Simulated scan of single mutants.
Amino acid sequence: MTFMPLPWQSSTMPVPSPTQPVFRFAPSPNGLLHLGHALSAIINHDMAAAMGGRFLLRIEDIDRARCRPEFEAAIFEDLAWLGLSWEQPVRRQSDHLGLYAAALERLREMGLVYPSVMSRGEIKAAVAAAEARGQAWPRDPDGTPRYPGRERDLSASEQAALVAGGRPHAWRLDVAKAVGHLAAPLAWCEAGADPAGETGLIAADPAAWGDVILSRSDAPSSYHLSVVVDDALQGITHVVRGRDLYHATSIHRLLQQLLDLPEPVYHHHRLVLGADGRKLSKSNGDTGIAAFRAAGRSPSDLRALVLGTT
């Protein structure tokens, strides 16, 4: 399979005006939206309005095991209650799996991906064994041990045999090799602030992540791969999101460069933290927009709370 022309590269498709900013809010329907989501949605919506731009809603529903239609319906209800409006139709990632497969195939043809079969248990055991020998195991910016890369240097026939054997596998990006394809160092334009408050041109460090997953046997695309393809397809000019994704921008810039995708401006905003100082999470059942509404609070109350104007 060859890499298909993407819609924004076709002369038959409408091309957004280069002077019109385009923002997006892209939640996953795997739980109820919490107050951190409200902050991000409001910031995107308000920035688009202030700049005379467009505000899009994208549903990131690739993980079919966790995403549910009732959560998607709740997203629409919560955002409408907040007084936000967005363009139609809403883009759902599950409707565009072929595009992510095409992007992965392009990277495969460039020799930049490899199949990995180590389970989480095997990775944990390898890390524990190395640390027991006194070796410091490298970790990514989120603190997760980097993948050992055991299959990276196998021959093409050996890698094909792994896949043909039927063992669950993931496709990983050979980040060191990918960086070697670049003609110049990577950077991005940061219009928000990093955790230390820095803005402007930020040097990217994709190698800090090790060999990230781009696709798994049970998931046709990873967040990293699908988000850069979607942002390009939708003509997103400003990616506004929480600081928890600040370091992931290095991988996104690498993928954009490899796939010849346009580079948006990035704006990483502060997070809404819980009483214990950690970021809010759906999986932890943190206070959601729906619960706030059920308690009799108004949209203006919530806006004032998350924007820090109370």
Rank of each mutant, 00 (worst) to 15 (best):
G149Q: 12
W137N: 10
D230I: 09
P220Q: 13
D194T: 10
P148C: 09
P220W: 13
D153S: 08
W209G: 03
D244A: 05
L225T: 05
H269D: 03
P195Q: 11
G180W: 11
E190Y: 13
G197F: 13
A196K: 15
V228C: 03
A232R: 02
H247F: 10
H268P: 05
R278Y: 03
D218Q: 02
S222F: 06
P262K: 11
L245F: 11
A164S: 06
G165D: 06
L261Q: 02
L182F: 05
R167V: 13
E190L: 07
Q256N: 14
P206S: 06
I213D: 01
A208T: 02
Y246D: 06
Q234D: 11
G197T: 11
V212I: 15
A275P: 00
D230A: 02
R270F: 08
G242I: 06
A191I: 02
A183W: 09
V240I: 13
R150P: 00
P148I: 14
L233N: 13
A136M: 11
D174W: 14
A219H: 14
G165H: 13
D174L: 10
R146T: 08
S221T: 14
V212M: 07
D174F: 04
V240H: 07
V179A: 02
D174N: 12
W209R: 04
D276N: 14
A248D: 08
Y147S: 04
A196E: 15
P145F: 09
S226T: 04
L258D: 03
V240C: 06
G166L: 03
A136W: 08
V228K: 00
V212P: 03
H267E: 07
R172G: 05
S222P: 09
R152T: 01
T144D: 05
A196D: 08
Q257V: 05
V175E: 03
